[in-house]
Simulated assay, not measured.
Amino acid sequence: MQELIQQLQEKAGLTAEQAVKSVDVIKEFVKGKLPPFIAGTVDSWFANMASQSDAKKEGFMDQAGDFLDDMKDKVEDWAEDAKDKATHLAKDAKDKLSDIFQDKKEGNK
């Protein structure tokens, strides 16, 4: 995270305090645009950036790519779960409607 803070200072002319606040704003913005179950991933990613030693730091773009890959996997899992639930709900609704119409059909005989 220090790398990002440093770039904000150099490229945007921010003070250290402004750069740190900017990173916090970015983090909260990203979390606000994602489903709640992914918010922990955002926190983990930023925490991981902050805890890496300078010698082992990956570039910001590499870290962002890893983060986005993780997000993609989670969203795909979420979408698959949502699809399964929607399919199940549609089947249940169809079965109930069929039962209702079958009962009415049999009642009219």
Rank of each mutant, 00 (worst) to 15 (best):
9 Q>M: 15
88 H>L: 14
80 E>F: 04
30 V>N: 04
28 E>S: 15
73 D>S: 15
78 W>D: 07
87 T>S: 12
26 I>P: 00
91 K>E: 06
80 E>D: 05
81 D>W: 03
83 K>A: 07
64 A>M: 12
53 S>F: 00
26 I>K: 05
40 G>T: 08
6 Q>W: 11
96 K>E: 07
52 Q>N: 04
4 L>Q: 06
76 E>M: 14
33 K>L: 14
93 A>V: 10
41 T>I: 12
71 M>E: 03
40 G>E: 05
9 Q>T: 08
8 L>E: 02
101 F>C: 08
97 L>E: 00
23 V>F: 00
82 A>D: 02
38 I>H: 03
92 D>H: 11
83 K>L: 09
91 K>I: 09
42 V>M: 00
12 A>I: 04
88 H>E: 14
77 D>Y: 13
105 K>P: 00
88 H>W: 11
12 A>T: 06
38 I>V: 14
68 L>S: 05
4 L>G: 05
10 E>D: 14
66 D>E: 10
49 M>G: 06
73 D>I: 10
25 V>K: 07
11 K>T: 08
62 D>G: 07
58 E>G: 02
41 T>C: 03
16 A>K: 13
108 N>Y: 07
46 F>M: 02
71 M>C: 10
43 D>N: 14
21 K>A: 14
82 A>V: 09
42 V>E: 01
94 K>N: 06
86 A>S: 11
32 G>F: 06
87 T>M: 14
12 A>V: 08
84 D>S: 14
50 A>R: 09
64 A>Q: 04
104 K>S: 06
21 K>N: 04
76 E>A: 15
60 F>Y: 12
78 W>I: 03
52 Q>W: 01
53 S>R: 13
20 V>T: 09
12 A>P: 05
106 E>M: 07
47 A>I: 10
68 L>V: 15
91 K>A: 13
89 L>F: 14
34 L>M: 11
56 K>T: 08
89 L>T: 06
22 S>W: 01
75 V>P: 03
70 D>F: 05
63 Q>P: 02
62 D>T: 13
72 K>V: 02
90 A>S: 12
51 S>L: 15
79 A>E: 01
58 E>C: 02
28 E>R: 14
5 I>H: 02
41 T>K: 09
16 A>R: 15
77 D>K: 15
74 K>P: 00
42 V>R: 01
82 A>K: 15
91 K>S: 07
60 F>R: 02
62 D>I: 12
36 P>T: 06
53 S>M: 08
18 Q>F: 00
77 D>W: 10
98 S>P: 02
78 W>S: 11
65 G>M: 07
6 Q>F: 12
